[in-house]
Structure formats: C-alpha cells, structure tokens
Design a protein around this nucleic acid. Structure first.
Lengths: 209, 209
DNA sequence: CGGGTGATGTCAGCTACTGACGTCAGAGTA
DNA sequence: TACTCTGACGTCAGTAGCTGACATCACCCG
C-alpha cells in the first residue's frame, strides 16, 4: 500500500519503472556488501521496493540475476561467427566471435564493472558453476555456428571449446588488473600461446641445470 | 528401532554395512526411474534404509552423489601429468593425464555404466552444471601440474582447458554409442582434429559451388 | 463507462539443507 | 567385569530457495 501511496503522490504510474534493473542493482550491492550466500532473495526484493515473489518472476533463480546479459552476449558471438568472411578458417571464425564478445564487454560496462562482478562470482561456488554453464553455452553456440559454416564434428565442438578457453583465460587476466593491455590484446597473446603449444615441433623449455 | 531389531536378528552389527554405496545405488535407480528433479533426498535415503539427515552427512548435496569418484579421477589425472617423461611437450603431458582418466573410466565401470550415468546428467540442468564444475576442476588440476613442470601462464591454463575439451568431446562420442572405437582411440582422433584446426596453413574446405 | 490485460502483492506449501542433541554398539582400558 | 569414549546414525526444529493459486488495480481499448 505504501507503494501505491508513493506512486499516487509522485505520478499516476502504479509502480516505479524498471523493476528488473532495480533488482539487478540491489543484488549487486548486497552481494558485494554481505556476500552471495548471506543475501536472501527477500532482502534483494526489499531493497528494490518489491516482493520476493516478484524477484522470482523476473529471474529464474538467485544466481541468474548476475547473468542477465548472457543471452545477448551469446547472440552477438553466434552472429559474429556466422558473419565471418568465407575465407576465414574455423579458428579465425571462432576468434571473430569472441573478439566481438570482448569488444562488447570492454565498451558496454568497462573493466571496473567486470572486476566487481568477477569478484562476486569467484567468491561463490554456486556462482562459479553458473558461470561455467554460461561459458559452455557460449562454446556450444560457437560450435553450432561453425557447423553451419560446414565444419564437421568433432572439430566444431572442439573449436568451440578452444575459443571459449582462450576467451576465459584472457578475461581472467584482464580483470585481474586495473589497467594494462585490453581484453582484445590479451586474446591475441593467448592465441600465440595456443599456436606455440599445439605446434608439431616441441619447444625447448629453458630448464635450470 | 526396526533397524535395530533387524540388525540384532541378522548379526550383532548395529547398522547394515556400506551406507554410502547403498545411497549411491538407490540414487542412481531413482534418478533413472523418476528423474533427478522428481526424486527427493528423503526417498533416496528411505530406499537405502537410512534417513534424509544421514544422506546429507555422506554427500554435500543432492547432486554430489553422482560425482562420488571425481576426486580420485582428479588425483589420477594430476599424477599422470606430473609423471610424464621430462621429454614430453606440455600437450603430450596433458594428454597423458586424460589418457589415464580414459583408461580408468573404460576399465573401472565400463561404457554401459557411463552411458546410464550420462543420460541422467544430460537430462538435468543442475547436474550438467555440476559436471561442468568437475571438468573445470580437472582442467585446473592439469594446469597446476603443468606449471610444476615449468610451463608458464597463460599457456598452462590454456593447455588444461584444451586437454579437457579433447576429453569431453571424445567422452561424449564414446557414450553416444553402445559399441565401436574405445575412448582412448576417440581421443586420438580428436587430437588429430585439434592439430588440423590450429595449423598455420588454412585447410581447404570442400564448399559447394 | 465497462471489460480485458499485465504486472504485482499475498498466502500457503514443498523441498534442499543445517544445527543441536539424543542414542547406542564397539573399542579401549583398568 | 565395569567404565568411558567415540563414531555413526536418528530425531527434531528451523531457514531459505522456489512455486502455484488467487486477488488487486492502473492502464488500455472499445
């Protein structure tokens, strides 16, 4: 009822706008303040001026609220792989996909936001599991897009996993520092490592005498 | 009390032996019969002749009971990577790890068991998440073992992920059929694909005119 | 002005999981 | 034999994630 009163006073709208956004903001704040496990869905909803039931109408579960943009990222990656030039090798097409993701992450929210978010995720086993799930979906998306380009199995699936591995490793190095090389740049370095590690010729490791 | 009576009649032991094994068996049965989500922890415990509370003393959660052997598999993989010959390249050492895992899976339980288990896991999002978590732990284990061999970052992390990707892709192809090439053999094929896909020279894909 | 719609609130309920505490065989010890 | 201690389990009560059913009410459309 207090919500109705406020809404009536301020404007003629029944509820405050953008409930999803308010819930996301409240969740990020509380997860940072008290940790994911110590935060209840009811607390998030309360801070957003909503009820627990409404929380679960917007997000399938308590974890999902931190992965709201995952589907858009997935669509972006898939379409980037699909629209790579015909002359591109499977590896190049896959890399085009994760470079698109990289650009989106760097521009849309920035490194500082990614750092905060990653700290929350890293602190909770449940959230780490969910993140792996999203990355696996991304890998499957890349693999599917590669198959549409005529890449056969198991190569497509393998390439999808490899692309995501490069992305993951680079992303972790990127968020580990406040400044320094950009995500796209770090992905280039990881690519070079991949080439070196899978080369036919064994490399000489400088070993101590 | 009925438990006590039975135990007194049968033998002087207070409880039936191997509660963990009984719980695992009951869980596999019920997950197959009714599905993971439709099975409660209390039902599993009841079938095993135990209480729900005891279930959670043996397994951290309802998912974990399907991943009981994961830590042993992890130890096996890590020690296999560590004990690869000094002359082995990082890729070869990592492959030695997952080949050890492959041998263990083929011998210890067999393909039929793996098929049944995989069907259960594939049918439940929660279980798929947990599986990804175990695979990520495996990848991290391989990466750690590689670092001890002198492989630097981000190469070690990347190699760990790649090894697990090969393992995962091969495993999925292995359990997809009742007979045919063994897991180790399929891993060899996946390796060849990897080499082809990451080669410097672009391959010619036979494209329709 | 009346009815349909959609987003929300309210309430009741299930299940995963946990902490505290009681119980009792078996092992060790005198 | 008697005494204690420990470990594995049972019992009970409670929290929190999540869901279904139903009520409410601004808004839109005719």
């Amino acid at each position: 009822m207090s919500v109705t009163v406020i809404a009536t006073i301020c404007r003629m709208t029944r509820w405050e706008p953008d409930p999803r956004g308010r819930l996301e903001k409240a969740a990020m704040e509380l997860y940072r303040e008290r940790g994911f496990e110590q935060t209840t869905a009811a607390q998030i909803a309360e801070r957003a001026g909503l009820t627990e039931r409404t929380f679960f109408r917007h997000f399938a579960d308590k974890r999902e609220i931190l992965f709201a943009g995952a589907t858009q990222l997935q669509d972006l990656v898939v379409s980037a792989v699909a629209s790579a030039p015909d002359s591109a090798t499977p590896l190049e097409a896959a890399i085009a996909g994760i470079e698109a993701a990289s650009a989106m992450l760097e521009e849309l929210r920035g490194r500082a936001f990614a750092r905060q978010r990653q700290a929350i995720v890293a602190a909770s086993p449940e959230l780490r599991e969910r993140e792996l799930d999203k990355l696996a979906a991304l890998a499957a998306g890349v693999a599917g897009a590669l198959r549409k380009r005529g890449v056969g199995d198991p190569g497509a699936a393998l390439m999808g996993d490899i692309a995501i591995a490069i992305f993951r490793v680079s992303f972790e190095r990127w968020v580990a520092r406040r400044s320094g090389p950009g995500l796209t740049e770090l992905m280039g370095e990881s690519m070079a490592e991949l080439r070196a590690l899978t080369a036919e010729e064994p490399l000489v490791v400088d070993a101590p005498a």
